[in-house]
Amino acid sequence: MPELMQFLMSGVTVGAVYALVALGFTIIYNASDVVNFAQGEFVMLGGMMTVFGYAAGLPLPVAALVAILATAAIGVALNKLAIEPARGAPVVSLIIITIGASIFIRGVSQVVFGKQLHRFPAFSGDAPIPVLGATILPQSLWVIAGALAIFVGLWLFFTRTLTGRAVLATANNRMAAQLVGINTRYVMSLSFALSAAIGALAGVLVTPITLVSYDIGISLALKGFAAAMLGGMGNPKGALAGGLLLGLMEALTAGYISSQYKDAAAFVVILGVLFFMPQGLFGTKTTERV
């Protein structure tokens, strides 16, 4: 029983990390149909800039805030300099642009921040909290709380605010959105800013657990992407559920079957789910128009 609890604790911790990354994908995807492969780099930038801000003597919350704002600005820059000029290009070209952006950001970070691994202290210490015979670190609770908060925030944003609906409208039909007076350029910039900020916040929360180096973005983006697809791309509920599910499957496979094949188990389940639910767990069915 304590074993199972420990596996669940581990699964929820890792799952919350994936969910945070997956949530970052949703806004840009909702606004533009583009899966932003540089999302992992936003996470890295959030963690990395906080490390350097903190090392430079800023209090941790201030360093984190600066990192999040700076990353949001980089998100806007990415949109203005690379995505907007390519408007009208096929989606696959836009994806290659985001892959290029991911390599570019990694390349710049490697020069600016170096290749060392870093971490900063956990927010509420490192004393493990006992839970039914297992333990969880306080920082894991921060990550889980962060994932839940962002999920609720996004859900409210998309359903309760005019701007959120404008984002959805832009994705649905750009021309129609413009006709009803939505400033689609502003919506795009906003989406990139928000996605980048969510990514950076994720970086701030997970760095005490996962550590940060210039190249952690790739593997985080890969898992986050898989989690988002498992849940149904574009849906915050799907991102949260997909992330947690992925984390739990990995932990339970590592615990009960084989740690060598824990990533395999996760992908087998993804393949299985997509076989029966081609739009992911919470995706909506779309029909092709001729």
Binding site: P2, E3, Q6, F7, M9, S10, G11, T13, V14, V17, T135, V206, I209, T210, I216, S219, L220, A251, L252, A254, G255, S259, Q260, K262, D263
Partner: peptide, 20 residues
């Protein structure tokens, strides 16, 4: 005899098995 991926974020399941 347990393993973990080079970018994994948490190895407590493997360590729990080892501990046991």
């Amino acid at each position: 005899d347990e393993t973990y991926g080079p970018t994994d974020a948490d190895m407590t399941p493997q360590l729990t098995n080892i501990k046991g």
